[in-house]
Design a protein around this nucleic acid. Structure first.
Length: 503
RNA sequence: GGCGAUGUAGCCAAGUGGUAAGGCAGAGGUCUGCAAAACCUUUAUCCCCAGUUCGAAUCUGGGCAUCGCCUCCA
């Protein structure tokens, strides 16, 4: 398995610190507002990465933080006249609602800043003791010049940062690039006691302190959006490596942005799609699949018509799994599809044997794609080819009934073919569903989360209209049958002067 | 100003030295009472220019275009 490492800007063989175990820290959200589609991309991407690592035999420890105290939360809470903790809780809940619907597996821990103040204070104190930080007016700053490797992740030099002239120039700091580890409390702000007075953690310190607590000084994978490379992750490295003197994360994985009309989706540009709204219009499975159609490091442009294309391709999956389910092909283990190769070799249709060969290579090709820096689109292509060839095999097996093969031979061949179809079903379940997280059994894709209700309403209206037609043509027998059958299903019809209603 | 990314068919998107995966859309055909699904056939020489090479979308140099980070941001 190879992973593109932002730190080295190359694809590197993945070698975990401990055989068969992977520690992965993914930067979570600051819960002060609703998630947008960009968040979904990030967490879907790392969900698939996590699933693939598990599929590959690793035991993964996945940690993802909530930065639940910060300027943005304080300000927003003040605007709404609620407590910061209540505000952050609201958006944490919303986060889980959205991500659960997308089929994202829960991380092992979701540590919060406010629950780790002692660890953070200790971390800051060590940095001061080691000469990496200094106290200034109740705040504590990291001294960038004390960490010569500063800039190694983002490829920046401190001198260049100054040339940009966009670094906030704090009159007090020793150097403009120094950043806050601990912020002196302003009046009426949430604060905690510390050796430097009342205050709260700076932005980057929580990830250093909490990743260390849950994953140790050095761990395998640290991930997040590309916009976190600088300054967030750069600063994390400075803090953590300044503290431990050891390498922080071995592999840095960063996902690309979601754009709208080619521009980054962001709060400040106001061009973002709120995730929960996107999910109410498009089924979460469509959104999830869409997010996998582009390599995780490339930018991807979001637009409704692209989701429509994705929806069509997902229907294609269901069209096949409908057939496989009707044929009783699901629910078997890989091992049960034995001997298909031998029998199919003598299939009277050589085309069928070719199908089998393609099916047999699916898993290997899927792995090759995913092993190459998690190439989601390539892996999806493999799945689509599996679907095509499985459909083809079904067609060929259908045709065998009318062939001139001897009965007993035809039976054996059809049985072998069926084994192949079971194998296809296994592959779809294991690869598409378990690894990519695309559920392969048909779901109503109609109208996002509201689809079920809308469909039911529509169907009921259709039945009522048909029954009304029967009543108008005096076909009361049919009308009564409809009413009785619905009653048996727990649906009651009421004919009123205003029309028929159901409950 | 510094650093970086991208430019492949109508649309989306893989491929990073040997003559272009896959999906969506389109066209023709098979099947079908009709439709749908499925199957078959079909739709590109890879932004431009120069160079390296037997051979480049794939490497080098130069353009053009778009975008990102350097300020909160997945």
């Amino acid at each position: 398995m190879k992973i593109y490492n932002t730190l080295t800007k190359t694809k590197e063989p993945f070698i975990p610190l401990i055989t068969d175990r992977v520690g992965m820290y993914v930067c979570g959200i600051t819960p002060y507002d609703s998630c947008h589609v960009g968040h979904a991309r990030c967490y879907v991407a790392f969900d698939v990465i996590r699933r693939y690592l598990e599929y590959s035999g690793y035991v993964v420890t996945h940690i993802q933080n909530f930065t639940d105290i910060d300027d943005k939360i304080i300000n927003r809470a003040r605007e709404r006249n609620v407590s910061p903790s209540k505000l952050s809780k609201q958006y944490e809940d919303e986060y889980f609602t959205c991500m659960d619907s997308l089929g994202i597996k829960r991380a092992d821990e979701y540590p919060k800043v406010t629950k780790h103040i002692p660890e953070i204070i200790e971390f800051v104190q060590v940095l001061i003791n080691k000469g990496h930080a200094y106290v200034l007016g109740g705040s504590v700053y990291f001294e960038v010049s004390s960490f010569p490797e500063y800039g190694k992740l983002s490829g920046r030099r401190v001198e260049d940062l100054l040339a940009g002239a966009r670094v906030e120039v704090d009159e007090q700091k020793r150097h403009p690039a120094d950043f806050a580890l601990w912020k002196n409390a302003k009046p009426e702000e949430p604060s905690w006691d510390s050796p430097w007075g009342k205050g709260r953690p700076g932005w980057h310190i929580e990830c250093s302190a909490m990743s260390q607590k849950y994953l140790g000084n050095t761990f395998d994978i640290h991930g997040g959006g590309q916009d976190l490379i600088f300054p967030h992750h750069e600063n994390e490295i400075a803090q953590s490596e300044g503290y431990t003197g050891q390498q922080f994360a071995k592999y840095w994985i960063h996902n690309g942005f979601v754009t709208v009309h080619k521009e980054k989706m962001s709060k400040s540009l106001g061009n973002f799609f709120v995730l929960k709204e996107a999910l109410s219009q498009y089924h979460p499975q469509i959104v999830r699949l869409f997010l996998l159609t582009t390599h995780y490091r490339s930018p991807m442009d979001f637009s409704p018509d692209k989701l429509d294309m994705t929806k069509a391709s997902l229907e294609r999956v269901y069209n096949l799994t409908d057939k496989l389910r009707e044929m009783g092909c699901f629910g078997f283990d890989m091992e049960e599809s034995i001997d298909r190769d031998n029998v199919m070799k003598h299939h009277p249709y050589p085309e069928a044997y070719k199908c089998v060969q393609v099916i047999q290579k699916t898993e290997e090709r899927f792995k090759a794609a995913m092993d190459d820096d998690f190439n989601f689109p390539e892996a999806l292509a493999v799945i689509h080819e599996l679907i095509t060839v499985t459909n083809k095999l079904i067609s060929l097996l259908d045709a065998i009934d009318v062939s001139s093969v001897a009965d007993n031979e035809a039976t054996a061949i059809v049985a072998a073919g069926k084994q192949c179809l079971k194998y296809s079903a296994c592959l779809l379940t294991q690869l598409a569903e378990n690894v990519l997280g695309i559920r392969v059994q048909r779901e109503r894709l109609g109208q996002g989360c509201n689809g079920q209700k809308t469909l039911t309403d529509g169907l009921m209206q259709l039945i009522i209209d048909l029954r009304q037609t029967a009543r108008e043509t005096k076909n009361f027998q049919m009308a009564d049958i409809i009413r009785d059958r619905l009653k048996a299903l727990g649906v009651t019809l009421e004919d009123t002067a205003e029309g028929t209603r159901w409950k």
